[in-house]
Design a protein around this nucleic acid. Structure first.
Lengths: 178, 178
DNA sequence: GTCAGATAGTAGGGCATCCGAGTATTTCTG
DNA sequence: CAGAAATACTCGGATGCCCTACTATCTGAC
């Protein structure tokens, strides 16, 4: 109970950072800074958790998302460019994502029937199976979000949507395959 | 106002994904899935924004965080291992982070006075200057979190802290330099 | 005191992401 | 219809992150 400077108690590093911020720059910017660092860290924790759940399927969350995009398509195929649009990642990221999914036999590159510039990523049978199985696991685990009640999920979504809006997180265009 | 299937209206891809989830797997897992994808996307948006703000200083958010850790230290130096603990990143990530900060002249590797295994990362004058300037910019920008009021920042932190707790996001140990 | 085990940092390799550049193809313009 | 511009994808290089070694050093047990 002494003023223990040599303490070995549990310390929350983000709270400590916020304390420093308030000390140096006052109360004003501290909440923003704290919100950002907390967002980063929470994302990192959830991502790690999901990647652990997906590892048995030779998937990462990024690859899982790409797989599900195809899964929801009538034909199980999409042009690589569309995948990038939907996932909001750079075209070159899609190339490497599909490279790995193809390597593991979950998708195949097939030519577009009418546009020879375009390559379609097409779900294989194995890909469809693994997408279904992985989804069972993630759903059963509530995507690692069990710490929050359903109402809290909605609260969180509402708050984060405000951030997404400022990032212009909407996309022009329909949702058809090509 | 017709049922426009050929629509070119603004579409929120995450909302669309949630709709698909509910259609395929019911109401139960959908909020968790939606919360996770929203978390990922919001993090990505904020991170991009911060990296844009920091680009003029030849910094990324990761490097900025490392710099600030040193900035808050009495001597402006920390063992690489401590940096990894505080930032919660792998030791090898610290090596590469410090490599780049050193390349840009913001830190120097200096030997630990008593433990020859240990390398200290020490803030240079340039590093201290850039840390201060970058912080001015980020503070003025409210870390890109202007979409949310201060009260909402606190709400968001509370929600995300619950996620961090399940990730065991506390660290044993004091906060002294070595 | 010596030697095993812990600790600190780095090298090499993999994944995900971005950017710029380059090729192929399609579309548009005059 | 020919050439310019737009579009689709890939390659090479960078950053950031992880993991598995591997080396150097320190600490502690006997």
């Amino acid at each position: 109970m002494a003023s223990s400077e040599t303490t070995t108690e549990r310390i929350d590093l983000l709270r400590e950072a916020r304390r420093q911020w308030e000390k140096h720059w006052g109360e004003e910017p501290a909440p923003s800074m704290a919100a950002v660092t907390t967002l980063m860290r929470a994302q990192q924790i959830v991502m790690s958790h999901l990647n652990l759940l997906l590892a048995p399927f030779d998937l990462t969350f990024a690859r899982y998302e790409a797989l599900m995009l195809l899964y929801f398509t009538r034909e199980g195929s999409l042009p690589l460019g569309k995948i990038g649009e939907r996932l909001q990642v750079h075209p070159t990221s899609v190339t490497s994502l599909i490279d790995r999914l193809e390597r593991d036999g979950y998708v195949e590159r097939t030519p577009h029937p009418s546009d020879r510039r375009t390559t379609l990523a097409t779900l294989t049978v194995a890909g469809r199976n693994v997408a279904g199985q992985a989804t069972q696991v993630l759903n059963a685990d509530r995507f690692g979000m069990d710490a929050l009640s359903t109402e809290s999920h909605e609260e969180l979504i509402l708050l984060l949507d405000r951030i997404r809006e400022t990032g212009g997180d909407e996309v022009a265009g329909d949702l058809r395959p090509d």
